[in-house]
Simulated scan of single mutants.
Amino acid sequence: MISMLFAISSVVFFMLLFTAVFSTIFQRDIAIESRADVYFGKSEGVEKKTKKPSKGITQTLLRKFWTLSVARLGRMLEKKDHRKLELMIRESGYEKLSPIEFRLIQILASITGGFLALLLIGPNSDGGFSALILALAVSFLFYRYPIFYLAKKKAQRVKLINRELSDFFDMVSLLLEAGVGLEGAITDVCDRMKGPLSAEFKKTLDEMKRGKSRREAFYDMKKRVPSDSFRSVMTSIIQADHLGVGMSRVIMNLTTRLREQRREMAREQAMKAPVKMLIPMILFIFPPIFIVILGPMVVKVFMEGLG
C-alpha cells in the first residue's frame, strides 16, 4: 500500500515538474499568443478550416515539446536508419507517421517503461542494483515493442492482401470483359471492396491523375506492398502493358493462377495441421489418458506391495 502511494505521488510530482519546466521555457511564446488573441481576436472561419482550436496551455506545451523533439531528433538520425524505418512504416501501412516521430515514440516509451518499473519495483527490492537492472530490461523491452508491433501489422496486412487478391482481380476481369477500361474497372472495384489492397490502388489511381504514367504508378505500388504474390501479379500486368497485350486475357489468367495458389496454400495448411496438433496432444491429452488408464493399476500394485 505504501509503495503504491509512493509511486502515485512520484508520478504526480514528475508531471507537475514537467508542466512547470515547459511552461517556464515557453512562457514568452504563450504570452505573445495570448496577447495577440486579446488585441487582434480570432478569425473563427479560417481557424476551423486550417487548424483545430486551442484547448489550453497543456496542449500547447505538448505540441511545442513534440515539434522541438522531432526537430532535434531529425538532426541526429542517420540516413541509413531513416530509410530503414521509413520502409518498415510504409510496409505496415502507417504512412502518415514519419521515421523521426516513430523513433521519438520509441524513446518516450522506453523512458516511461523504465521509470514506472523503477517506481513499482524499487521500494519493494532489497538492493538498488537489481532494481536498476530490471528497470533497464523493461526499458529495452518498451523500446523494442513498437518495432515488434510494426512487424505484426505488416504480417497482418500481407495476409489480408493475399486473401483479397483473387476476389479483387476476378471482379476487375469481369468488368474488363464487359468493356470497361482498366482504370475504370479498378476504380469501381475499389469503391465496392474495402481493405488495404483497395487503399493501395486508390493511391495509385490518384498518382496517375496527377500525371504519373500507368507503368510508373504500378511499379511504385509494387515496391510499396510487401507481398510476393502481389508483386508477381503486378510484374505480369506491367509487362503486359509494356508489350501491348490485352489486359482482359492477362488478368483472367492471373485470377486462375491466384485461385490455384490459394488452393495449394489451403492444402499446405491442412497437411501442417497434424504436426501442429501433436504438441498439445503430448502435453495436455496423453498425460490425463495415462493417468486414467494406469492410475488404478499403479495404486493396486502399491497397495499389494505394502500388504
Rank of each mutant, 00 (worst) to 15 (best):
I89H: 00
F102V: 00
S92P: 01
H82A: 06
L68W: 14
L97I: 15
R90Q: 04
P99F: 02
S98W: 01
R72I: 15
L68N: 09
E86T: 11
R83I: 06
E78M: 08
F102A: 00
R75N: 13
S98I: 01
R72E: 07
H82W: 07
S98R: 04
G93I: 01
F65R: 05
K96R: 12
I89V: 04
K84D: 07
R83P: 03
Y94S: 03
R83C: 05
K80E: 15
Y94M: 08
V70T: 09
M88N: 05
L77T: 08
L73R: 15
K64Q: 08
K79D: 15
W66K: 12
K96I: 06
S69C: 09
E86W: 04
L85I: 05
F102G: 01
E86R: 12
S69F: 13
A71I: 12
K80A: 14
R83L: 13
R90A: 07
K64A: 10
L87N: 11
T67Y: 12
G93T: 01
V70H: 14
K80V: 08
V70R: 13
K79T: 14
L73D: 05
S98A: 01
V70M: 09
G74H: 09
E86Y: 03
P99I: 00
W66T: 06
I100L: 02
E78A: 11
E78L: 08
R103T: 06
L68R: 12
E101S: 03
S98D: 00
K96H: 07
F102W: 04
S69L: 15
L73G: 05
S92Q: 01
H82R: 10
L77H: 13
K84G: 08
R90L: 05
L73W: 10
L73K: 15
E91P: 00
V70C: 13
L87W: 04
Y94L: 07
K80Y: 11
K80Q: 14
I100V: 03
L85K: 08
L68S: 14
L77K: 11
K96G: 11
R72S: 11
K84R: 13
S92W: 01
L77F: 10
V70F: 12
S92G: 02
D81C: 06
S92A: 02
E95V: 05
F65H: 06
L87V: 07
R90S: 11
F65C: 14
T67C: 12
G93P: 00
K64G: 08
R75M: 14
Y94E: 08
S92L: 03
D81Q: 11
K79A: 15
E86A: 09
K80S: 14
F102I: 00
I100R: 02
G74V: 05
L73M: 15
F65E: 07
K64C: 07
M76H: 05
P99M: 02
